[in-house]
C-alpha cells in the first residue's frame, strides 16, 4: 500500500512530478560536468572523446547544417514510418480477418524480424540509384512493418468475450463489430507498436546513410565529419540525431497515452 502510493501520485501531484523531472536533469548536468572536468584535467584527445563544451560549440556554430540534416533524415524516417505503419496495419487487418493469410504470412514475418534490415541498404542503393532517398525510406519502412504488424494483430485479438457476446446479442453486422469493438480494442496496441517503431525508423534511416546515397542526412554528416577528423562536429551531429529520435519517441508516446487513457474497466 505505502509503496504504491508515490507511484500513483507521480502523474498528479505537481511536487512529485517536479522531482521526477528534476532527478534525471540533475544527473545529466552532473555527468556533463564530470565529463568536462575529465577531458580538461586529463587532456583527453578529441578523437577519443571531445568535451561537452566543444560539442556544444560546434552544435551552435553548425546549427543550420544540423537542422538540414535533421530535416533530411527526419523526413526519410517519417515517410518510412508512415508507409511501414500502413503496410503493417493493413497486413494485420487482413491476417486477423482471414486465417489463411495469417498462416501464409507468419513465416514471412518471422523471417523479416530476424533480417538485419539496414544490411539491405547497399542492395537497395544499387536498385534505386544512389542519388535518391528511396533506399533509405524503404529501409525505414521495412524496420517499422514488423513491430506495427505484430502489435496490431495482437490488439485485434484482444476483444473480450463479453464484448463479442454483447455485439452478437444485438445482432450487429461484421462492419459494426469492427467499428464499435474490434478497432477500438486494437487502437492502443497499434500505438504501442508505433511508439516502438518510431525509434527504429529514425535509427534505420540514419544507419542506411552510412552505406551510401546522397549527402545531406545526419548519418552522412557524421561519417564525413569523422572522416575529416572533426570529432566535435561529428558528435554535434550525433547530438542532433539523439534529439531527432527523442522527438519521434515523445510524439508517439503522447499519442499512445491519449489513446490508452480509457482502457480496462470492470
Amino acid at each position: 500500500m505505502t509503496s504504491a502510493l508515490p507511484v500513483r501520485l507521480s502523474g498528479r501531484d505537481p511536487r512529485t512530478r517536479m522531482r521526477v523531472l528534476l532527478a534525471p536533469v540533475v544527473l545529466g548536468v552532473l555527468v556533463l560536468g564530470l565529463w568536462q572536468l575529465a577531458v580538461e584535467s586529463f587532456e583527453i584527445d578529441p578523437f577519443v572523446i571531445p568535451s561537452p563544451q566543444a560539442i556544444f560549440d560546434r552544435f551552435i556554430t553548425n546549427i543550420s547544417s544540423i537542422v538540414d540534416g535533421v530535416t533530411v533524415t527526419g523526413r526519410n524516417a517519417l515517410m518510412g514510418l508512415v508507409i511501414g505503419a500502413v503496410i503493417g496495419i493493413v497486413g494485420a487487418l487482413l491476417a486477423s480477418a482471414t486465417w489463411i493469410f495469417d498462416e501464409m504470412t507468419a513465416p514471412l514475418v518471422a523471417a523479416l524480424s530476424v533480417i538485419p534490415i539496414v544490411a539491405l541498404a547497399p542492395v537497395l542503393y544499387t536498385l534505386y540509384g544512389a542519388a535518391a532517398e528511396t533506399a533509405r525510406i524503404i529501409v525505414a519502412a521495412l524496420s517499422v512493418i514488423v513491430p506495427v504488424y505484430l502489435n496490431t494483430l495482437r490488439g485485434l485479438r484482444q476483444v473480450r468475450p463479453v464484448h463479442r457476446d454483447l455485439m452478437r446479442s444485438h445482432a450487429a453486422s461484421a462492419p459494426q463489430v469492427a467499428r464499435t469493438v474490434t478497432l477500438p480494442t486494437a487502437t492502443p496496441y497499434v500505438f504501442t507498436g508505433l511508439r516502438i517503431a518510431s525509434s527504429l525508423a529514425v535509427i534505420s534511416a540514419l544507419i542506411a546513410e552510412y552505406f551510401g546515397g546522397p549527402v545531406g542526412g545526419l548519418g552522412k554528416s557524421i561519417t564525413s565529419a569523422a572522416a575529416s577528423s572533426n570529432y566535435p562536429l561529428a558528435w554535434a551531429y550525433v547530438l542532433g540525431a539523439i534529439l531527432l529520435g527523442l522527438a519521434f519517441y515523445v510524439v508517439t508516446l503522447l499519442v499512445e497515452r491519449f489513446f490508452t487513457r480509457h482502457t480496462g474497466s470492470d
Binding site: V162, V181, T187, H262, T263, S265, D266
Partner: peptide, 12 residues
C-alpha cells in the same frame, strides 16, 4: 435485452 454477469461496458 440482456445484462451480463460482468457489466461488459465498452471502456472507450
Amino acid at each position: 435485452g440482456i445484462a451480463f454477469q460482468q457489466a461488459g461496458l465498452l471502456p472507450w
